[in-house]
Amino acid sequence: MEPESKIRVLIAKPGLDGHERGAHVVAYGLRDAGFEVIYTGLRQTPRQIVNTAIQEDVDVVGLSILCGAHLSLTQMVINGLKEGGAEDILVLVGGIVPEEDIPRLKEMGVGEVFTAGTPVSAVSNFIRAAVSAS
């Protein structure tokens, strides 16, 4: 079999929030969509997420946040990526995000926000389109 290029995605849970269901489901779903998914578990600091994203050379960082701290945590990750010269990595956010915060996240540079009820196939299609468009 010929080796081929794979889309690599980091699914990360920043902060102390321990609700992992969404992250797990998305990780499984993206694996089954043919992506290489790096899952780092709970309690990741923004610094850890940024370092992992750069070392693993991922195309996408997916942040799963359900504790209401999405604005500050996402900002820290995006700043860190910028500092590490990795601002081209696509950042996506999933979890409990009130509608009014979505434009603010996008202003920060988040590619898309996926809230409850989003099919995983929508996430994988979005990623595939975004990554191949580059």
Binding site: R31, D32, G34, V37, I38, R43, Q44, R47, Q48, N51
Partner: peptide, 22 residues
């Protein structure tokens, strides 16, 4: 391992290496 069905993979070894990420 990669999944033989989708060609994707769930790479989880880092779960146990958090303290050396930085």
């Amino acid at each position: 391992p990669s999944s033989p069905f989708s060609g994707g993979a769930l790479l989880g070894d880092r779960l146990r290496m958090k303290k050396i990420f930085t």
